[in-house]
Design a protein around this nucleic acid. Structure first.
Length: 203
DNA sequence: GGATCGATCGGCT
DNA sequence: GCCGATCGATCCG
């Protein structure tokens, strides 16, 4: 499986965040470092968040300086710091002015494994990017990339077309670690792609 | 393998 | 002030 370098079109992202969260599984997340080296992984796990009655979403109480990128048009990046030390990478979805995004929680490393391992302090391959904070560390993603338009020419992070995914290989569950109310905790807005052997390797 | 806990700081009730 | 869309070390079994 080779990484592809062509970004998915804007229309892919300008849809409801639940549709995009599912459609992102199997696509390739590409990170181009300042020195030109490219890192790539296949998206294995996502979670959808959106404004309205979703109390777990950062935009539940309106726009702030931190969550402003969630209100940009689909195809932007939203990155924030959590627990004071870990970064989380989100793909902004839906139309401009509507707060919505998909948290990418895990990837299967495809290329640039040596660089990822170095960024991850020598972790085993299976532990390189099987969690949102670990994935950002492996890919050197931090808040300086928040608000980035991933469809701009030469964007240092973007989503490329991956392999097609069998719907039967997609598992849904409640989102991990979210607060809010009972509705937010119960909604099955987490999407996990099973590995080729049928197991779930994402965290 | 599972449970527990400390780290660490930005954003907001 | 309080508490996270988390991780890794440590302890116990």
């Amino acid at each position: 499986m080779r990484p592809r370098m062509r970004a998915l079109p804007r229309a892919f992202f300008e849809r409801d965040t639940l549709i995009v969260a599912r459609a992102l599984l199997g696509q390739h997340l590409v990170r181009v470092l300042p020195d030109g080296r490219a890192l790539c992984g296949r998206i294995l796990e996502t979670e959808a968040y959106r404004e309205g009655d979703d109390a777990a979403a950062h935009c539940y109480r309106g726009k702030t300086a931190r969550n402003a990128p969630m209100y940009l048009r689909g195809g932007h990046a939203y990155v924030y710091l959590t627990y004071g030390l870990h970064h989380c990478f989100n793909v902004v979805t839906d139309r401009a002015g509507f707060g919505a995004a998909v948290l990418v929680r895990a990837i299967q490393p495809l290329s640039g494994l040596d660089v990822m391992r170095a960024q991850r302090n020598g972790a085993r391959e299976r532990d390189l990017a099987n969690g949102p904070g670990k994935m950002c560390q492996a890919l050197a993603i931090d808040r300086s990339l928040s608000g980035l338009d991933m469809l701009a020419p030469g964007a240092p992070v973007f989503i490329a077309a991956g392999d097609s995914v069998d719907n039967a290989a997609i598992h849904t569950s409640p989102r991990i670690g979210v607060g809010g109310d009972a509705l937010a905790k119960s909604r099955p807005w987490r999407f996990v792609l099973a590995a080729e052997d049928g197991s779930f390797t994402a965290s």
